[in-house]
């Protein structure tokens, strides 16, 4: 029996630039120029003002641990990692992404809300999926 593999995302035309960037090891998001605000998930217009004056831009890859669960019943492909954290990361630029927290124990004491995180990537079926790991606090951070 084949070993289960982790689920792999499949891009659509509107999300292709996001996945093209992760393939290069970069995190890119769209920013609405009139609103001067980043938004997520991708779409070719601003969900707030409907302007199509939007641009793909690299973002810092830094964020904070907003909230999480520690999943004890693994999804296919995650058997060896269980239990594992599934988190929402609030990026410095504002939007929140779901991602696994890696390079940290999957224990509540090691996963303190608002701790600083930075992006890294993991290959899942040929797609580079964003993950986050603990980071050193930035200057001026809370």
């Amino acid at each position: 029996m084949a070993t289960p593999t982790k689920p792999s995302p499949k891009a659509t035309p509107e999300t292709q630039p996001f996945w093209d960037a992760t393939a290069r090891g970069e995190l890119h998001l769209q920013r609405c120029r009139p609103c001067d605000a980043h938004y997520f998930p991708p779409r070719p217009f601003c969900p707030t003002c409907h302007s199509q004056d939007v641009a793909w831009e690299p973002v810092s890859g830094r964020g904070r641990l907003h909230t999480y669960v520690i999943n004890h019943r693994p999804a296919p492909g995650f058997e060896e990692e269980a239990p594992y954290p599934i988190a929402l990361v609030e990026l410095e630029e504002g939007p929140r992404l779901m991602a696994n927290i890696v390079e940290a124990p999957a224990e509540p004491d090691a996963l303190v809300l608002d701790m600083p995180l930075e992006v890294t990537f993991e290959d899942q079926g040929g797609m580079q999926v964003p993950k986050f790991r603990p980071a050193e606090p930035q200057e001026g951070a809370r």
Binding site: K6, P7, S8, P9, K10, A11, T12, T15, W19, F40, P41, H66, T67, Y68, V69, N71, R73, P74, A75, G77, F78, E81, Y84, I86, L88, L97, M98, A99, N100, L113, Q124, M127, V129
Partner: peptide
């Protein structure tokens, strides 16, 4: 796989509602 949840939630090892619904509880 090419829905928005399929691209931006499922790859992180979600297993139905128990991994998604309580996401905000710790916050």
């Amino acid at each position: 796989r090419d829905s928005l949840p399929g691209q931006f939630e499922t790859p992180h090892g979600i297993v139905g509602p128990p991994t998604l619904f309580p996401m905000g509880v710790l916050r």
